[in-house]
């Protein structure tokens, strides 16, 4: 097992280097001049040139990449900065360190994605088991219809429809203003997940508003995930239901909820959880559109705004973060599966 883990981790390194290279190339191929952006429209040519020099944009591209990766050693410096030292650089747009910027926005994305995946699981698991039990019946067909439809509906459109219904027509939930009403103080707490922080500190008022703001983004992010999880659960449940041990359990008098909860669902669960993990890994970077609809201050929106403003270090960090979470989640899923099923290691 250990050698398998080492092998998989070693295989990760060239992929991640490739990812940094691709992120670098793409961000530097963007039209627009970050120095001019930084200097503002009234800056003189000399000022722009000075900024360009300071940001190191006058170096050749290979040198810039080298500086990005291993710091100022490339320029004969004392060895500061660089990705290998965990330094993501400084955002040209906000002036803060990129790590700080991303760190401030990551909890928002995590809160939304986690809530969305929880929603997807809560809907898809029971429905999937139920559909398998009623195989071929109306409910099963309905579930299949829903899951085919689920992948056909764009998440950003669903987000807008939800807003139309629950914010504009019914006025039950708040509009697209982010995690809390404009001007509200976020709750103090260790996690920066507003729902959890306000709950821990017993701030019920904030808790209620935070939950209200979270509901629609949660459904919009979670709904497209329902379809694949539902299908997987249904098929896994079907094969469990046809197994000998369930036949034995039934013969021994088990039925109803204990049978489904304890024996069927437990065996159908790993697949569904794996799938949820993969989707969540994808969503950390891929939630841009839903974040945009709800003005949700997450990493996706940060990445997009950086892109619009040709903010090289910030774009690279965002792209890197998306790719790394996705790859690492993928690896984690593989490793967990190889623990459960040792045959995977032999491939």
């Amino acid at each position: 097992m250990l050698s398998y883990v080492t092998r998989r981790l070693a295989a990760l390194i060239p992929i991640l280097i490739g990812v940094t290279l691709l992120a670098f190339i793409v961000s530097h191929a963007l039209p627009g001049d970050p120095a001019r952006q930084y200097a503002g429209i009234n800056a003189s040519e000399a000022q722009v040139e000075a900024i360009r020099e300071r940001l190191g944009l006058n170096e050749s591209l290979p040198v810039q990449y080298c500086v990005y990766m291993i710091g100022d050693t490339c320029l004969g410096g004392s060895g500061k900065g660089g990705l290998i030292r965990g330094d993501l650089g400084e955002s040209i747009r906000t002036g803060f360190s990129v790590a700080q910027d991303v760190g401030a926005r990551l909890p928002a994305t995590i809160e939304m994605v986690a809530a969305g995946m929880l929603f997807a699981l809560l809907v898809a698991l029971p429905l999937g088991v139920w559909a398998a039990v009623r195989k071929g019946k109306l409910l099963d067909r309905f579930c299949r219809f829903i899951s085919t439809l689920g992948v056909a509906v764009p998440d950003f459109w669903l987000a807008m429809i939800l807003l139309l219904i629950f914010f504009i027509v019914l006025e039950w939930l708040p509009g697209p203003v982010g995690r809390l009403p404009i001007g509200a103080t976020p709750p103090e707490g260790p996690t920066s997940l507003y729902v959890i922080d306000s709950l821990v500190s017993g701030d019920w008022e904030t808790f209620r508003t935070a939950v209200k703001h979270l509901i629609l983004p949660m459904v919009a992010i979670g709904f497209p995930a329902v379809a694949p999880i539902l299908r997987l659960t249904r098929n896994a449940t079907l094969s469990v239901l046809n197994s000998d041990y369930i036949a034995f359990g039934r013969a021994a008098g088990l039925r109803g909820a204990p049978l489904y909860l304890k024996y069927v669902l437990r065996n159908a669960l790993p697949g569904a959880v794996t799938m949820t993990g993969l989707i969540a890994g994808y969503m950390i970077g891929g939630a841009v559109l839903v974040e945009r609809v709800f003005s949700w201050p997450g990493v996706g929106l940060y990445g997009f705004n950086s892109l619009v403003n040709t903010d090289y270090p910030a774009i690279q960090a965002y792209v890197l973060l998306s790719a790394v979470t996705y790859t690492v989640v993928f690896l984690a899923v593989d490793l967990v599966q190889s623990l459960i099923d040792p045959r995977v290691r032999l491939k």
Partner: peptide
């Protein structure tokens, strides 16, 4: 396959946004 791994390490949308912004 390693090249594909690198391309697929990006969420498709993120990659498409980046490349499209660069190309116009």
């Amino acid at each position: 396959m390693r090249c594909l791994d690198v391309i697929q390490a990006f969420p498709a949308l993120v990659l498409a946004i980046g490349v499209l912004s660069a190309l116009g």
